[in-house]
Amino acid sequence: MLLGECAHVRTGDKGDIAQISVIAFDPGEYPRLARRVTVARVLGHLAGVQVRSATRYELPGLGALNFVLEGALSGGVTRSLALDAHGKSLGAQLLDLSVDEDDQAGEA
């Protein structure tokens, strides 16, 4: 199962920081998301993005995880030469992350 089958994302960017919130469609899926959508797996999935530091915040009451990716925007939205490597693009890419329990690819 891909992340996009059990969750949606909301994103934002400010300066050189991208934020990706992963929100379960069904709150019952939150425990799976908490186990499978780790900082290591997010960074592995977004391997082409140079991230200086990443922090995950857990919001179990909302069935959501929030990732703050510092340095992810190549100097900032207005300074980057990258084509649309902003929050929305990163969030859309993350929806292809496998959240199957038996998938060990990218485990850390």
Results as ranks from 00 to 15, higher is better:
21 S>A: 15
37 V>M: 12
70 E>C: 08
97 L>T: 11
105 A>R: 14
29 E>I: 07
28 G>R: 15
61 G>H: 10
49 V>L: 01
20 I>K: 05
93 Q>K: 13
22 V>D: 06
15 G>Y: 09
62 L>W: 13
52 R>D: 12
45 H>F: 07
26 D>K: 08
52 R>Q: 13
96 D>R: 14
48 G>A: 09
46 L>Q: 07
12 G>M: 04
40 A>G: 15
55 T>R: 15
62 L>M: 15
50 Q>T: 10
36 R>Q: 15
5 E>P: 02
99 V>R: 08
61 G>Q: 14
58 E>V: 03
108 A>D: 10
95 L>C: 11
48 G>H: 13
41 R>H: 08
80 S>I: 03
66 N>A: 12
62 L>K: 15
97 L>R: 09
100 D>G: 07
58 E>P: 03
71 G>C: 03
1 M>F: 10
87 G>C: 00
20 I>T: 06
38 T>V: 12
99 V>Y: 08
38 T>M: 11
9 V>W: 00
11 T>K: 01
80 S>Q: 08
21 S>M: 14
41 R>Q: 09
34 A>V: 02
43 L>D: 03
21 S>P: 01
87 G>S: 01
1 M>L: 13
46 L>R: 05
99 V>Q: 09
3 L>K: 10
5 E>K: 11
99 V>I: 15
76 G>F: 04
1 M>W: 05
16 D>F: 10
17 I>W: 06
95 L>H: 07
87 G>P: 00
60 P>A: 13
52 R>F: 08
49 V>G: 01
66 N>G: 04
59 L>A: 15
74 S>R: 07
73 L>T: 05
60 P>L: 12
25 F>P: 00
79 R>F: 11
28 G>V: 10
75 G>L: 04
61 G>E: 15
31 P>L: 09
91 G>Q: 08
29 E>Y: 04
56 R>C: 14
43 L>N: 02
63 G>C: 14
104 Q>I: 03
52 R>N: 08
80 S>A: 11
67 F>L: 03
58 E>F: 02
43 L>A: 02
3 L>Y: 10
106 G>E: 01
42 V>A: 06
68 V>M: 02
92 A>F: 00
65 L>F: 08
16 D>Y: 11
72 A>D: 09
32 R>E: 05
30 Y>Q: 04
99 V>M: 08
49 V>A: 01
55 T>D: 07
10 R>P: 00
100 D>L: 14
93 Q>H: 08
23 I>Q: 11
81 L>R: 15
37 V>H: 12
99 V>C: 09
33 L>S: 04
6 C>A: 07
100 D>M: 07
92 A>N: 13
51 V>P: 03
100 D>F: 01
3 L>N: 10
85 A>F: 00
87 G>F: 02
94 L>T: 05
63 G>N: 14
9 V>E: 00
58 E>R: 12
63 G>Q: 13
39 V>T: 15
18 A>Q: 12
48 G>C: 02
102 D>L: 06
